[in-house]
C-alpha cells in the first residue's frame, strides 16, 4: 500500500498536560487524507470542483500508545498514512501512525463515505460511489473488503460500557467554529465538543467519576457519525461515565442528538486509563 509521510513541528497547543489532544490527531488525520488524495488521486479541491465528489466522515478511531507522548519530549511529530477503498468505491478507509522520538505515539483510523454533489454552490450531496476513473487510480492492494461497522463494535465490546455511574446532559448550538466549508459539522470539532462535555462534568459533580473524567489520559476513542448536523442546529450532548469493570478501563460515552429529538446523530466512546490514586 502506498504511503504518505510528513513531519511537523510540535507546538504547545497540540497537547494537554497528559498527552496529544484528540483534536490534534484528528486535524493531522484530515491533513493526511488531503495529502494522500493529492499524491495518489487528485487534490481535494479538484475532487469537489472537477469530479463532483466529496466525502463525509463516518467514523474515526484513535488509540494512544503508552507511555503517552508529552510536549517536551520531541520537537517534531511524523505522520504516516495509507488508504484503501472498498470494492464498490462507496467508502474510503485511512490508517494513520503518529510517530515521535523514534516510537509510535498513537494510531488513528478514518472511514469516510463517498458522496456525489448535487450542486457545487451549496455542496449538498447524496451518497454515491467514487467515479470509476478515480477508483481505478487505487493500486490493486488498496481495494478490498472493509467492515465499516468495526469501530462501533470495538467500542461496544469495551467491558465498562453499560456500567453507568454518572450521567449529564448539555445543550448547545452549533456555530461556525464547529463546522466545515459547507456549514455542516466538522468531525474534528464535534469530537472536541464531546471532550468538552466530559470535562464539564468536573465542574458539576464532586464524585470519583467526575475526577476520572479529567484526571486520566485517554487510551482509545471511537466516534460514529450517523447523520450530520448543520450550522445553528441546537444539539444535546448526553454523557455517561461508565466505571471500570473487572480491572478494565473506565469509558465515557456521549450521544449527540438534535434538541428534543430521539435520533442519535453522533456516538462517541472515550476509554480512559484508570486512576492510580
Amino acid at each position: 500500500m502506498r504511503q504518505v509521510e510528513f513531519t511537523q513541528p510540535v507546538t504547545t497547543t497540540q497537547f494537554s498536560p497528559l498527552q496529544l489532544r484528540p483534536r490534534t490527531l484528528l486535524s493531522l488525520m484530515s491533513e493526511s487524507f488531503a495529502r494522500w488524495t493529492a499524491a495518489h488521486l487528485v487534490p481535494f479541491p479538484a475532487l469537489v470542483a472537477e469530479h463532483g465528489t466529496a466525502v463525509v466522515v463516518q467514523s474515526v478511531g484513535i488509540d494512544y500508545a503508552a507511555p503517552d507522548l508529552r510536549f517536551d519530549e520531541s520537537a517534531w511529530i511524523t505522520v504516516r498514512c495509507t488508504m484503501s477503498a472498498d470494492l464498490t468505491g462507496d467508502r474510503l478507509w485511512m490508517w494513520v501512525d503518529y510517530l515521535a522520538t523514534g516510537r509510535l505515539a498513537a494510531k488513528g483510523t478514518l472511514i469516510v463515505r463517498v458522496v456525489r454533489l448535487a450542486d457545487k454552490g451549496s455542496l449538498a450531496a447524496r451518497p454515491g460511489p467514487l467515479p470509476g476513473h478515480l477508483l481505478a487510480m487505487f493500486a490493486p492492494g488498496e481495494i478490498r473488503e472493509l467492515d465499516a461497522r468495526q469501530p462501533a463494535r470495538d467500542a461496544e465490546s469495551w467491558p465498562s460500557v453499560g456500567n453507568p455511574a454518572l450521567t449529564s446532559s448539555w445543550s448547545t448550538v452549533l456555530c461556525r467554529s464547529h463546522c466545515e466549508v459547507a456549514d455542516q459539522w466538522s468531525f474534528i470539532e464535534m469530537v472536541e465538543l464531546v471532550t468538552h462535555a466530559r470535562e464539564r462534568l468536573f465542574t458539576m459533580d464532586v464524585s470519583e467519576s467526575a475526577r476520572v473524567a479529567v484526571a486520566a489520559p485517554l487510551r482509545s476513542l471511537r466516534a460514529v457519525f450517523r447523520r450530520p448536523m448543520f450550522l445553528f442546529d441546537e444539539c444535546q450532548v448526553d454523557t455517561t461515565v461508565c466505571t471500570a469493570v473487572n480491572g478494565d478501563r473506565p469509558v465515557v460515552h456521549h450521544e449527540v442528538r438534535g434538541a428534543g429529538r430521539d435520533a442519535v446523530h453522533l456516538s462517541v466512546w472515550e476509554q480512559l486509563d484508570p486512576l492510580d490514586t
Binding site: 465528489t53 463525509v56 458522496v115 454533489l117 447524496r126
Partner: peptide, 12 residues
C-alpha cells in the same frame, strides 16, 4: 402552514 426545507448531507 409551515414548510421546513432540510438538507440531508453535504460534502466537505
Amino acid at each position: 402552514d409551515q414548510i421546513e426545507v432540510l438538507t440531508a448531507i453535504a460534502g466537505g
